[in-house]
Design a protein around this nucleic acid. Sequence first.
DNA 1: CCGGACTCCTGGGTGC
DNA 2: TGCACCCAGGAGTCCG
Length: 270
Amino acid sequence: MPELPEVETTLRGISPALKGQRIKAMVVRNPSLRWPIPPEVQQAVGQTVLGLQRRAKYILIDLGKGGLLSHLGMSGSMRICHADDVPKKHDHFDIVLESGQCVRYHDPRRFGALLWWDPPAHGHPLLKGLGPEPLQADFSGEYLWKRSRGLKLAVKNYIMSGKIVVGVGNIYASEALYMSGIHPGRPAGRISQARYETLAQTIRDVLARAIERGGTTLRDFQNSSGEPGYFAQELLVYEREGLACFQCKAPIRRKVIGQRSSYYCPRCQR
DNA sequence: CCGGACTCCTGGGTGC
DNA sequence: TGCACCCAGGAGTCCG
């Protein structure tokens, strides 16, 4: 489910409730996420939340002497509720605060994660080797172009690889490539620097706009208040197979690239 | 060092 | 209704 805009939306939603609060309890109802929730997360109890940040699609909660690291996987969401609200099916853990509120993690498919990190956070194995953040200055068309020389990999897989740039998932990769006029299956090494400049810009644009709309809700994404995101109505190609391209009216195609559905216009994208 | 296939899991939709 | 099958927003791991 969640790509960068949905994780950012979640982070912004839970931050006010968490910041400066002391953690009263860590309630784990089902530890069977992608990796078992380790006992070390209990170190959070009694600690005060100093801050939160996002790195790629990971949420980092800073508790001073380390902290929590969570990933939403394909179907995860976090919601602010009261600690005594009755948990629903797939509500796997709670971060209970002294305020009486709690952050409740919901994840039907259980591809998400809750782990503990010891300082420095960027030394965590999952965060090492990640590429630049697409909304920061070290991400550019020149960078994309330089790193792609000689690669035969499809450009869609290239921009979805966290080693190159983080946070671009299946929806926004399709959208940015459409906006750039680049065919998703084109070998990454056979795209000019000028076209990569366009692609870097469209990646930034689509992510920024999606954050403004609170993310994309296709099926079940919810923000920390239980509301959907509104970017789905602005999608230009994703899940529009057979419908007319907004630019040229040709039918949008779906093709599996790297085991994932890719949507593109066969006329506008080369 | 690639790059591609496989894997973890539940639920919703479709077609018979 | 039931059932088989396909598909889904991620990404680490393994293998050639």
